[in-house]
Simulated assay, not measured.
Amino acid sequence: MLLQSLAFKNGESIPRKYGYKNGNHSVPLNFAEIPEGTKSLALIMDDPDAMGAVGKVWVHWILWNISPESNEISENSIPPNSLEGKTDFNEIGYGGPAPPDKEHTYQFKLYALDTLLNLERGSNKQELEKSMENHILADTKLEGKYTP
């Protein structure tokens, strides 16, 4: 499976306009090579570097029931029939990078699932991960850096 963004390359800087305090536009993502048998895709964007600053991995975006026929998530939108969950900003939807101290690396993790998830909009990352258990066919990751 392949996950990319037209906004930045893997391991490079995420443009300012995608930051929480600088426009908060959701990052455009493209995906390909989805495994056969995939019924839906799920996305988790989080900040593992926040562990040192706030004591936990900070959740910035969760999205599920993305159609496997879709090959992208357009900037500042979500695919039809997909659902968004609650971030650690206590908001539903995208919450862009907002490192409190120094440059952080953000992870966009895409999962191919063998089922549609029976989760309500506004669910959290733990509920999403529990719901995905034993249903992951493949996963991939894209990383970007952001400096305050």
Rank of each mutant, 00 (worst) to 15 (best):
132 M>A: 09
128 L>T: 05
145 K>W: 01
62 I>K: 04
109 K>R: 12
123 S>M: 02
126 Q>P: 08
51 M>P: 10
107 Q>S: 11
121 R>I: 02
35 P>V: 02
22 N>C: 13
127 E>M: 05
53 A>W: 04
18 Y>P: 02
120 E>D: 12
84 E>R: 04
111 Y>P: 02
68 P>S: 11
13 S>H: 08
50 A>L: 05
78 I>F: 07
108 F>P: 03
148 P>H: 14
126 Q>G: 09
30 N>V: 11
42 A>G: 12
8 F>H: 05
57 V>Y: 07
134 N>K: 10
33 E>L: 06
112 A>L: 02
117 L>K: 00
57 V>T: 09
102 K>N: 14
67 S>F: 05
74 S>E: 08
59 V>S: 13
94 Y>F: 06
46 D>E: 10
58 W>L: 12
35 P>N: 01
104 H>D: 05
19 G>P: 07
99 P>Q: 13
87 T>H: 01
16 R>S: 14
10 N>E: 06
72 E>N: 13
69 E>I: 08
11 G>S: 06
57 V>R: 10
44 I>S: 07
90 N>T: 13
118 N>P: 09
57 V>E: 08
111 Y>A: 00
3 L>N: 11
35 P>Y: 01
28 P>I: 10
131 S>I: 13
125 K>F: 09
12 E>S: 08
83 L>Q: 11
139 D>G: 04
95 G>M: 14
50 A>T: 03
64 W>H: 10
140 T>N: 00
140 T>S: 02
